[in-house]
Design a protein around this nucleic acid. Structure first.
Ligand SMILES: [Mn+2]
Ligand SMILES: [Mn+2]
Ligand SMILES: [Zn+2]
Ligand SMILES: [Zn+2]
Lengths: 161, 161
DNA sequence: ACTAAAATTGAAAACGATTTCCGTTTCTAT
DNA sequence: ATAGAAACGGAAATCGTTTTCAATTTTAGT
């Protein structure tokens, strides 16, 4: 906890609004996100903490509140896939990711490829809209699922919509 | 056998799949979508129908069921913005849209500009992932909101994150 | 260290969108 | 007309998330 406090001390200065402090709960949630790969939901995190920390684990409410703060601080990205559940992943401030989501096995893959550069410019001129952020998620089949599906039903159509 | 069939009717429904017919409820909901611009939620639609058709209006449950069928038929696109509420809009089969969402006034604009063409190909080769569909939504400020918030800076800035 | 004020915590309750249940109504085919 | 199948709709359930609020912990002033 000392390490994390030191590493993110600069963030503590920016705390404004409801949540004012970078608390132990936040530190624990941040730690959990660091140690987890994937894109867990708040309940995933709370459960994992309950399993690893038992009675020391922060409650679900605190997990939600911590995630909200971390997101506001810019070190957590909130992502929502088709099931509507909010999921969270660690980022560096200013960074963002997109995802490949397998519709069959549910596996998600972070990708940093971003296509916004030209688009934002053309949107700006065509619609007079200032793009400040964007969401891009790609749905389809991962290699394994695509292979196994093609074996069962050979030559399935390749549709890009 | 009648008793058993009746008691487990809901299970059988789930196995076979739900909606089978294009019913009056669907027709009414479809009509409502045609006459509405914007991207209404199921509750928006139900309320509007209640206002216009009074006791003839389909109930909220039927609105949900109709929207589900219309989406499955490919003539309704389901979109979810940051508030997580599902919204619906009419499309031609195979068609899809993206949106500009003003973070200040909430105005949304459909755009048909699509960036998937090159991306799906490069994703396929780099990640062996078959892209079948995608979600792209752009958040920012519409012209009016941008002008009123930064009247000091008349030029439209393009911030891409 | 003491103490009062401020902030955080978490269990329970509230919330809101969506889904499920199930009795009633409508449709369809004979 | 009749029976079986499907749809309807209101109530209840579900589920992720937020709010409430009393208790606890932390902070800041002395
Ligand atoms: Mn991007
Ligand atoms: Mn597209
Ligand atoms: Zn897969
Ligand atoms: Zn606006």
């Amino acid at each position: 906890m000392h390490i994390i406090t030191r590493n993110h001390k600069h963030l503590a200065d920016r705390l404004v609004g409801r949540r004012k402090q970078f608390t132990k709960g936040c530190r624990i949630v941040l730690e959990a996100l660091k140690n987890t790969q994937g894109t867990p939901s708040a309940q995933d995190i709370a459960l994992q903490l309950k399993n690893s920390l038992s009675n020391q684990a922060p409650g679900l409410t605190t997990v939600y509140r911590s995630l909200e703060l971390l997101a506001r601080l810019g070190i957590v990205q909130v992502v929502t896939f088709r099931d509507g559940e909010r999921r969270y992943e660690l980022i560096s401030p200013g960074e963002h990711f997109h995802h490949l989501i397998c519709e069959q096995c549910g596996k998600t893959t972070r990708i940093s490829a971003c296509i916004i550069d030209g688009l934002a410019q053309s949107i700006s001129t065509e619609y007079s809209f200032m793009v400040k952020s964007h969401v891009l998620e790609l749905y389809g089949l991962c290699k394994q699922c695509n292979d196994s599906t093609n074996n069962a039903i050979p030559n399935l159509l390749v549709e890009v919509s």
